[in-house]
Design a protein around this nucleic acid. Structure first.
Ligand SMILES: [Mn+2]
Ligand SMILES: [Mn+2]
Ligand SMILES: [Mn+2]
Ligand SMILES: [Mn+2]
Lengths: 218, 218
DNA sequence: ATATTTTTTTAGGCAAGTCTAAAAAATAAG
DNA sequence: CTTATTTTTTAGACTTGCCTAAAAAAATAT
């Protein structure tokens, strides 16, 4: 149905549309896929003919219903595979992304359904991101960036905004994992750093870290 | 390292070399891959430059040590994935091949090592074919085509020569699966059909079937 | 030994996906 | 409201992998 390259474009547009309701620009897609704007224009025309995006010259693109469903299914596969790698094959959360980028393109509805069964119908991947259901629907939970919590507020770590292995390994080193209870002890004005309690440990983290950690307030 | 297409050529040559020690002909490869001889010639030149095959014009090809190791690793992945699909995802033996054809190209040494662990280091795939070890070595067992058994000889079904889903579903229907005990009751001269006992069931099978079932004599 | 048939290679072309450089349109600045 | 800058599209080219048709080599038959 769709080539590997087409699937990657659909996924990129899907992710970009989660953060914006305007038309997704050629440059934004090019940046996401680390390719050139001219290549994006070429591909957009093909996707438009295949009725998965709506495209008007110079106006950016939007996914159609079909496009959104197709993209969500790829994201579903990506995240289910990530769960599999962590739960069944002892990968750590910083090792799964690149392999999942390959596995998400495997075409077999039975495979993904059975994987879902084997994993016990998980709702979130190892980075706290929701797994779309078969229809492509996402249930989004209320979560806040750690940086938005006030002094003395407490929450559970439920996700990361940056899934790079560098960041994830840094979190491991600090003892911060999904499910950990985090309390803001102090907010420093001059550099926006935070003193926090993670479980029983106290530590200080920079603004950048606090801007990439999602917390569910309790 | 190698493209999907290159990997498929290497695998085809690898399988053909198991049955022949002469140079593998352009036409044989073309037939195996359902492509044209001219395409094969093109690809062989590329593989030759990459030092995975030895090629002399009009003389056919041989895999080099590197080529053989690379191909065996793809076969290893294919067969481990087939075991996974059957053992963990409830696929039947006639459903796994096409999915494994895709999965065998996923690049991640850790993935395949951990899959091996999860599956308990299987030595054979669901069709009775041996799984190459990490170095690419195959341990071949002594097996015979059912058609070569004499009257009153008995053995265990250990493999199939034809893995098409049509044949495998036919075997399912007849109650013939790997591990079943099979005894030759009668050999008919005029059409080479056999009367056999499978477990406790008696049935008659054609020459064609007997030529595609592997038996380990006991 | 020569002619015929089969196999293999070459030549030229096509589609997908990418790139660079240049042109066109849209946006921002003065 | 013009001019300058940024964004996007077009034009043309390249690589990979495939094809058809024709030429060349090898194998087979007479
Ligand atoms: Mn990921
Ligand atoms: Mn993830
Ligand atoms: Mn197979
Ligand atoms: Mn098999």
């Amino acid at each position: 149905m769709f080539t590997l390259s087409e699937e990657n474009y659909l996924k990129a547009i899907y992710h970009l549309e989660l953060d914006s309701d305007k038309g997704i620009s050629t440059n934004a897609i090019a940046e996401q896929l680390e390719t050139k704007a001219s290549s994006v224009t070429d591909m957009i025309k093909k996707l438009s003919e295949k009725k998965v995006v709506v495209y008007k010259k110079y106006k950016g693109v939007h996914l159609t219903g079909l496009g959104k469903k197709t993209a969500a299914n790829i994201v579903r596969k990506h995240r289910l595979w990530e769960v599999f790698l962590v739960e069944k094959l002892n990968f750590s959360w910083d090792e799964v992304h690149d392999v999942a980028e390959q596995l998400e393109h495997i075409k077999s509805p039975k495979l993904i359904n059975q994987l879902d069964v084997l994993l016990g119908f998980p709702t979130h991947d190892p980075h706290g991101d929701p797994i779309p259901d078969k229809e492509g629907n996402l249930k989004t939970i209320e979560k806040s960036l750690l940086s938005t919590l006030a002094k003395n507020e407490t929450g559970i770590c439920v996700g990361v905004d940056d899934s790079s292995s560098e960041f994830l390994q840094f979190l491991d080193k600090k003892g911060i994992t999904l499910g950990k209870k985090i309390t803001v002890l102090e907010k420093e004005d001059f550099d926006d750093s935070l003193s926090i309690k993670v479980g029983e440990e106290k530590l200080s983290i920079s603004k950048k870290i606090a801007n990439n950690l999602y917390i569910k307030k309790i």
